[in-house]
Design a protein around this nucleic acid. Structure first.
Lengths: 158, 158
DNA sequence: GGGCGGTCGTTAGGGACCAGACTATATGGT
DNA sequence: ACCATATAGTCTGGTCCCTAACGACCGCCC
């Protein structure tokens, strides 16, 4: 497999609407994002926790207090229904606890258990260790450059 | 939401194993990949086809002849089990047809139907139009730079 | 105070992905 | 010719995500 993905010179001629540089970027962006995600998944494998679950623990830990699922769904940029499912599995593993909100009876507050708090730390350490590893080949300057370029794109994409 | 995602200056101090530039890149890579995918999904929405299905049609069209699922799974970098599922839905929509391989009876050959071939063209046009749109803010030079940086990362990631 | 629209979390159902087990077939070494 | 191994496709059961449709509850406005 070549890296990065390249498209042939006569590509633009073949597909009138296509810019080969745009297509190349798009494919490589998608592929790289996927590879990054794959790294996180396999780093988390031994902890028996999913990336989504790990992110939820991190959000709870950062908040420093119990949060409603709605808040988690916004931070995760994911539907409330999905959060329900992720919380279900976290509850089953004893990392998190659901309690009714003291005043608003529509809401639930998600509490981090002792084990959940420890797991949040472990997840964070594990993920960061992985990042440092595979980001190795890029210099500080290149990293800044990459972040900058991605930022420009995100402004247009969001 | 800020773009790109930035992490605070005292981040590295807080998490001993973390390099803030690596973390920034990782988060922005994941986010950007996700946004790109989201764009493709919504561009394909009116066609009633999933990104995975669209890619399979493209692979078949490019090959110019019927292919075994195994070949598709390799091009897609996805498990054979997943290809089975994607093919099932394409078959249901009449875009693709399964036929036994003439000589190797373990294999199946996936044929593109007339409708499937037309759909492959439509998908390609739709996706390319979208790319040209959101890649707009990056100059030719910046695109090349981005592709280059992603390539370096991919070599380490794969 | 009685309704009514909006928000909360959950449920139901569906698609894309995976690992692992299973069946059928092909093939290479003896 | 025979058997071990490898390969092809599928099936099972699991996660993660979605949309749509609930029922419960809050608040505001008349």
């Amino acid at each position: 497999m070549e890296m990065p993905i390249r498209v042939s010179r006569d590509f633009a001629a073949k597909y009138a609407d296509a810019s080969s540089s745009a297509t190349e970027c798009a494919m490589n962006l998608a592929r790289t994002g996927d590879l990054v995600l794959g790294r996180v998944v396999s780093a988390l494998q031994p902890l028996e926790i999913s990336p989504a679950g790990g992110l939820v623990l991190g959000i709870l830990k950062d908040a420093g207090e119990p949060c409603p699922p709605n808040y988690i769904s916004e931070r995760l940029i994911v539907s409330r229904a999905t959060v329900t499912g992720v919380l279900d599995t976290l509850v089953k593993r004893g990392l998190v606890r659901r309690e009714p909100h003291p005043t608003d009876r529509r809401m639930v507050l998600v509490h981090l258990t002792k084990a959940g708090s420890r797991m949040a730390d472990t997840v964070r350490r594990t993920v960061h260790r992985g990042e440092a590893d595979w980001m190795g080949p890029l210099s500080e300057h290149e990293r800044a450059q990459l972040t900058e370029l991605l930022g420009k794109l995100q402004r247009n994409l969001a």
